[in-house]
């Protein structure tokens, strides 16, 4: 009886929190906006230590969900951790595409936007080549960029990039093979967020869809637990639309034809040849990743020509690689060490 009363109070409290979702602060690490387009922004984070490593790091986030996954809350912030390790960090906030953006392709994202931002970071830092970190779909775009503009990339660090989809074992990979991307894009233009929610909700419907809410009700009177939970929920349901033409390429060329790993994908008329990647490469994957299975990302390491390449597999999930206590304690110190060693001009 007592337990039922407690659960009832928890549910009531949960609805209060849900009403305040918009006021929940995320992405609080101080940053300057060094470029502001109609929607697109380039953030430059303020340093947290006196001595910084000279080679800056540009973060290319995915086009799905929002960039602040890297800075959800101070004690689990990827950005804050890397700043404290002395890295000079720039991050692309892609914003939300509007109907006018429906014709944006990977060519625009990679050869126009990323390239412009890389040039801006190079100019601001005075470095000929910079480090790039790409996460998930951003990892795939970083890989495309590195094949086409390798002369500007000193180090490439990717987390869960989508590379060889034939080896992908996720539900998302299975469903994507049967989606009529042409019909969707021709009809909707940009792919609406609702479509993305639908795809996410069937990924782990009980462990993540039901169990987490049962646990939430149990812990609804614990302030830290609730705030952490609500931040992740806010991030999960804050996904922008995807530019139509980019979605068409993403589904058809990558998920259905698997062109990327076959070195047959073209963007802006240029061939994306993975063997052109010869800079130091760090690939990070998670054993329990249900969005991009490790088997899908790992082949990158076997298709590049880099001599200095490292593959790290961690016992966590897709978002756990960025925003978890585990990541703060185990993943980021290792990544920082790898990157630091290669962030000086005398470095290999």
């Amino acid at each position: 009886m007592q337990q039922m009363q407690r659960s009832g109070q928890g549910v009531m409290q949960a609805s209060q929190y849900a009403r305040n979702l918009d006021n929940l602060e995320v992405g609080t690490t101080p940053a300057d906006v060094v470029y502001q387009g109609r929607k697109l922004r380039l953030l430059h984070y303020k340093p947290m230590v006196e001595k910084m490593h000279p080679v800056p790091l540009l973060v290319v986030y995915a086009l799905i969900n929002r960039y602040y996954a890297l800075d959800l809350q101070p004690d689990r912030s990827w950005v804050r951790n890397m700043l404290q390790q002395g890295f000079d960090i720039y991050l692309i906030d892609w914003g939300s595409p509007e109907p006018i953006d429906k014709y944006l392709t990977f060519d625009d994202y990679v050869n126009r936007y990323i390239d412009t931002f890389v040039d801006m970071v190079r100019d601001a830092s005075g470095q000929e080549r910079i480090s790039i970190h790409g996460y998930c779909m951003g990892g795939t775009m970083s890989v495309m960029y590195a094949t086409l503009h390798g002369e500007k990339v000193k180090n490439l660090y990717v987390t869960a990039p989508v590379i060889d989809v034939e080896k992908d074992t996720t539900v998302l990979g299975n469903l994507s093979k049967h989606i009529d991307a042409d019909l969707l894009v021709d009809n909707y233009g940009n792919i609406p967020p609702e479509f993305m929610y639908l795809s996410f909700t069937i990924l782990k419907p009980f462990k993540q869809g039901v169990n987490k809410y049962i646990d939430f009700v149990k812990h609804a009177d614990e302030k830290d637990y609730v705030e952490n939970f609500m931040r992740i929920e806010k991030w999960l349901y804050d996904t922008p639309a995807i530019a139509g033409e980019t979605f068409r390429q993403w589904i058809k060329d990558i998920y259905q034809k698997n062109l990327l790993v076959k070195n047959q994908m073209k963007i802006g008329g240029k061939l994306v040849d993975l063997s052109r990647i010869d800079m130091p490469l760090l690939t990070v994957v998670a054993e329990d990743d249900h969005l991009v299975s490790p088997e899908c990302s790992v082949p990158l390491n076997y298709h590049v020509s880099s001599e200095d390449k490292t593959l790290k597999v961690y016992p966590t999930g897709h978002i756990g690689m960025l925003a978890s206590t585990y990541s703060q304690k185990h993943i980021l110190p290792e990544i920082g060490a790898w990157l630091k060693e290669r962030s000086y001009n005398h470095a290999k």
Binding site: N174, L175, H178, D180, L184, K204
Partner: peptide
């Protein structure tokens, strides 16, 4: 339930029905 539904969502058969449903809605 997780096991049963993941097996279902991972199946070719389900993906085809899902794809057709989506296609006709669009």
């Amino acid at each position: 339930f997780e096991q049963e539904f993941t097996t279902l969502f991972d199946s070719e058969d389900f993906a085809q029905v899902f794809g057709q449903m989506l296609k006709n809605e669009v």
